[in-house]
Design a protein around this nucleic acid. Structure first.
Lengths: 100, 100
DNA sequence: AAAAAGTACTCTGTACCACAGAGTTCTTTT
DNA sequence: AAAAGAACTCTGTGGTACAGAGTACTTTTT
């Protein structure tokens, strides 16, 4: 049996991916909004987003809202797929206890 | 919002607790059987079980089957409760993305 | 009888990693 | 001017998952 997806399993990243997955496709969340949801520091959130970006699970867009910098985060199709698969894995674990 | 239960969230311990929770109350699993389920080493499994025992989530019974030592592991009521609550937390995260 | 293998545990060392916090840059608000 | 917000990077610390070796005892295999 697999171990699930360790990138997604981590508590903070699970929340990030769940938040993004909930949105419709092509919708994104602001860095600051995400920071409020996961309740962490700038630095920590930045690190987790970098991890997810490196895995190809999120896309990070830096743009300007007027002249204020704004970072927006969006799940990629591959990220959505990985999230869905990990949720399925969790459900399976919960139901079967890992026996297959 | 809470962070869920970090003791139970860890991948290997999640499998252990799920395996035990699946059994009826007062039912137990052998150390060796559990080791096969979670696919890890003696030492590692022992450490995880010690963590769960210290949290009051499992009870460890050392006995003899004939003259062979046998370690049996059982979820405590508190362990079952914690597992159920963490599963509820996971479901909530998955559905709401952590927004409350 | 000797060797191998199983059960279960402890200990050590390694490698990773989550996180806080400080420092930076630039901008807007007060 | 000063404070505060946005969004990073970097560093240091602490925690911890895991493998693997070593131990003690027992049963099975050769």
């Amino acid at each position: 049996m697999s171990d699930g997806n360790p990138i997604i399993h981590q508590a903070t990243r699970l929340k990030i991916m769940a938040s993004l997955n909930r949105l419709g496709p092509n919708a994104s969340l602001e860095f600051t909004h995400l920071r409020a949801i996961v309740e962490t520091t700038d630095g920590n959130l930045g690190t987790h987003l970098a991890t997810l970006e490196k895995a190809g699970y999120v896309e990070i867009e830096k743009r300007f809202e007027g002249r204020k910098p704004q970072t927006r985060v969006m799940a990629t199709p591959s990220g959505r797929r990985a999230f869905t698969e990990h949720v399925a894995y969790l459900c399976e674990i919960i139901e079967t206890g890992g026996q297959s």
